[in-house]
């Protein structure tokens, strides 16, 4: 619509405005997930029934999804590298691969939830499963949001425009990956 304000181009804090803002987004996301997972840990440590419910989660599916997200993070950071080298089309390809990783993650998650619901473990069947679906669901929403933004970024990066955005969405994607790195042991390993 209009050109960026001069304000956006200044960097008195020693960092480009976009990157600074992404870090603030991440800071505010840390406390959202922190509140939810903190509550989960309190329940998990004090309720015996959580242990028996947790035995029903499938660690191998969780591990597979961890691998998928780690791989997509690698693509994201390779996209950042390509963008730094000024290679927009390559950066866009890497972002598409990242989106593909996110899609695989969501498909596996869908299968996993389908199987769980099929076995009678629904959102309301026990507090453990309430947390299981809420935490993973909130995380999945972040995956979906990241994928959508990434498609837009890839579309401009393909034309060698706004290449700094590749890094910004990458930082966000790595954060989503880090959240899953903690969700994996919390929900799948510790039984």
């Amino acid at each position: 619509m209009s050109a960026r304000p001069i304000a956006t181009t200044r960097s008195a804090a020693g960092m480009p405005t976009g990157r600074l803002a992404v870090w603030w987004v991440i800071a505010s996301e840390i406390v959202i997930f922190g509140g939810l997972l903190g509550s989960y840990v309190m329940f998990r440590l004090s309720h015996d029934s959580f242990a028996s419910d947790a035995a029903n989660t499938n660690m191998y599916i969780g591990a597979f999804n961890t691998w998928v997200l780690l791989t997509s993070s690698l693509f994201a950071v390779l996209g950042h590298k390509a963008a730094e080298e000024g290679n927009g089309p390559k950066a866009a390809r890497m972002l598409w691969l990242t989106v593909g990783g996110g899609a695989v993650f969501l498909l596996v998650k869908t299968y996993e939830w389908y199987e769980k619901i099929h076995h009678g473990h629904t959102l309301s069947s026990s507090t453990f499963f309430s947390f299981y679906y809420t935490a993973a669901g909130l995380h999945a929403l972040h995956v979906i949001a990241g994928m959508i933004i990434m498609l837009f970024v890839a579309n401009t990066a393909r034309k060698n425009l706004e290449l700094h955005r590749v890094e910004l969405i990458g930082i966000y994607w790595h954060f989503v990956d880090v959240v899953w790195i903690f969700l994996f042991p919390l929900l799948y390993i510790a039984k």
Binding site: V31, F33, G34, G35, S39, L123, S124, T134, L138
Partner: peptide, 25 residues
């Protein structure tokens, strides 16, 4: 605001689920 509101955002989601989806947080 940014550093304190997070747990309540999570809490609001949990409360909405309690109200409408039968969870028991």
């Amino acid at each position: 605001f940014m550093a304190s509101v997070g747990p309540l955002v999570a809490g609001a989601v949990m409360l909405l689920f309690d109200q409408n989806l039968g969870t028991a947080f």
